[in-house]
Design a protein around this nucleic acid. Structure first.
Length: 577
RNA sequence: CGGGAAGUGGCGCAGUCUGGUAGCGCACCUGCCUUGGGAGCAGGGGGCCGCUGGUUCAAAUCCAGUCUUCCCGACCA
């Protein structure tokens, strides 16, 4: 592609609307433009990257026995009413009515549509297993779209759905998708981890997320330094070894703590470590009043709490509720005599006693509290988030925290949808059975954003060779110079004929301008064609990621260039394609 | 939906407090000049000052309403 005839409007200045790096850089590099909140046009360069990502996904999906199709974006509401998700899905589901006043929605996901298709077409075990996928634009009417492509309302997603006869088959399908995903993210040249994940609203039991590692990621991943354990912080279980401790010898005693609302304040005031103070967190869970207890120095994990309670809705209690349940203002809640429906406590609270807790009275706490003796704990469970000090739940190794961006998620769905929608088949004995399903998503447009979050510097994007709209940029320093023009043209044709994606910057601009632009748009390799170099019989090659420059002889340039290219691809874990 | 901020040529912003000719930088067009890190000089084009209403001789500026966008929170792949 010649830049002079391409459409890649770069920006020197930072767009005011962008906050995160990938958003800023994609706007500046002329890859996307916003149409309206959370909805973007993919400009040619952005679309090229997305197509490259899609193509890698296609190849690997196909290799692991998945078959591509394309389902409608618009879906009838009736299908969603069958699974109950018309009501359950909430406001992200964009609903509308047609001229006949019938309910429709724009698909945020396609379990209903695919299950409807399969229940009509598949009736025998001989037709299973099946794994079907599509790459398609989805729409979720996010409460607050932000961060450009990272959390748009409209986005491109690869979603796959597997149908199996039995659990063993479903496990195999899942495993294949796991392998396919590992292969996909490797071939994209990204640093990533597959982590154990919470299954959230989609339901099911086993689930893995694929996380692109980036400092700007919103998810926290706990990994083990010894074994291959890796889990989303939401999910990572905390093992709690040890015996229940004996009862506290001292009786509970009220102490005055005027104005001390927080754990640090109370600990400081009473001259005890924070870990001896109990945090009593009050929640409204599907209308139920719940108190959750963790040690003062710990963080409650709301996902774990939500799963333990088996509720949809979990909200921290407001001031009014707190006063009603505790008889005191905020900051003085404690488990002793608390008027709630349920009190749950973190496992490790069994190991110790003699706690400081809120007294459920203004400006007062209790000391020498023993939970079994003084309070009514309904259940002890793993409720807190894992920390660096905790041992790995698998191997007792140590835990490290990393930030990541969720780009893929795979689920075992079981029979949730097949049962609700009566997607059944007859087995070899003529018995009717529900199909066992799985679903597997990759946020294609988010992958692009994540790639940039992971690979950039102050000058712009540093694309991996697999994702770059153009793997090579040739900078013709002064295209008016006959020699420069001739050499850059012939080089351009040579590399194109070798099947490389090449951008020839043949614009009549000053050198500095073009260097800046090329760094910004992020081709992993730059070839600089200048009059001086040609005179000396060399062309200069710059590695975008390291900044390293190589002067390669014009003689056999192609061969030498391939060596640098191989080195760069290796840096991103890629074979020379 | 709660809290905060902002809407002025394509982009980034000043001007608004204190009403009186709409400005600056970048980008764009023409010419000269320049060609190894976003050059220079000269000339030029482009604005319903988000929208609606009000106050006033007069509104980008004051008042009321409304829409949109961005940030923080709850929510989510």
């Amino acid at each position: 592609m010649r830049w002079s005839r391409y459409f890649m409007p770069t920006l020197k200045e930072e767009p005011a609307e962008a906050e995160v790096v990938s958003h800023k850089l994609m706007l500046r590099a002329g890859m996307i433009r916003k149409l309206t909140a959370g909805i973007y046009t993919y400009l040619p360069a952005g679309w090229r990257s997305l197509q490259k990502i899609s193509e890698i996904i296609r190849n690997e999906m196909n290799r692991y026995y998945a078959i591509e199709l394309l389902m409608p974006a618009v879906q009838p509401g009736d299908l969603w009413k069958e699974t109950g998700r018309w009501e359950a899905y909430g406001k992200e589901l964009l609903r509308f009515r047609d001229r006949h006043d019938r309910d429709y929605c724009i698909g945020p996901t396609h379990e209903e549509v695919i299950t409807d298709l399969i229940r009509r077409e598949v009736s025998s075990y001989r037709q299973l297993p099946l794994n079907l996928y599509q790459i398609q634009t989805k729409f979720r009417d996010e409460i607050r779209p932000r961060f450009g492509l990272m959390r748009g309302r409209e986005f491109i997603m690869k979603d796959a759905y597997s149908f199996d006869r039995d659990e063993a088959g479903a496990a195999q399908s899942y495993e294949w998708m796991h392998q396919a995903y590992v292969s996909i993210f490797r071939k994209l040249g990204l640093q990533f981890r597959a982590v154990e994940a919470d299954t959230g609203a989609i339901g099911g039991s086993i689930s893995h997320e694929f996380m692109v590692l980036a400092d700007t990621g919103e998810d926290i991943i706990a990994t083990c330094t010894h074994c291959d354990f890796a889990a989303n912080l939401e999910k990572a279980e905390v093992t709690c070894a040890g015996e229940d401790c004996p009862e506290c010898s001292l009786p509970p005693e009220k102490v005055l703590t005027p104005g001390m609302h927080t754990v640090p304040q109370v600990a400081e005031f009473l001259k005890v470590p924070e870990r001896k103070v109990l945090k009593t967190l009050l929640y409204v869970a599907d209308g139920m009043a719940v108190a959750a207890l963790v040690r003062g120095d710990r963080e409650l994990n709301e996902v774990k709490l939500k799963n333990l309670l088996g509720v949809q809705d979990l909200e921290m209690a407001g001031q009014e509720q707190v006063e009603k349940w505790t008889g005191a203002g905020m900051g003085f809640a404690g488990p002793v005599g608390l008027k709630v429906d349920k009190i749950v406590a973190d496992l490790e609270l069994r190991l110790e006693t003699d706690w400081i807790t809120g007294a459920n009275a203004d400006d007062a706490h209790l000391r020498h509290v023993d939970l079994r003796r003084d309070a009514q704990i309904n259940e002890y469970n793993d409720l807190r988030s894992i920390t660096r000090e905790d041992p790995c739940p698998r191997c007792q190794g140590s835990i490290r925290m990393t930030k990541g961006i969720e780009v893929g998620h795979i689920f075992r769905l079981g029979t949730k949808y097949s049962q609700a929608m009566n997607a059944v088949y007859l087995d070899e004995h003529g018995t009717e059975k529900p199909m066992i399903m799985g679903c597997y998503g990759i946020g294609v447009s988010r992958v692009l954003a994540a790639c940039i979050e992971q690979n950039h510097d102050e000058n712009g994007i540093i694309f991996t060779p697999a994702v770059a709209p153009f793997e090579v940029s040739i900078i013709a320093l002064n295209p008016k110079d006959e020699m420069v023009r001739k050499h850059s043209e012939s080089l351009y044709h040579e590399l194109c004929s070798l099947n490389m994606d090449v951008l020839l910057d043949d614009r009549d601009e000053r050198p500095g301008f073009k260097f800046k632009d090329c760094d910004l748009v992020g081709s992993p390799l730059q070839i600089i064609v200048g009059a001086k170099g040609i005179k000396n019989g060399v062309l200069e090659v710059k590695e975008r990621h390291s900044g390293q420059r190589h002067e390669l002889p014009l003689q056999d340039f192609g061969q030498h260039f391939q060596e640098v290219r191989r080195k760069v691809r290796e840096h991103f874990g890629l074979e020379t394609g």
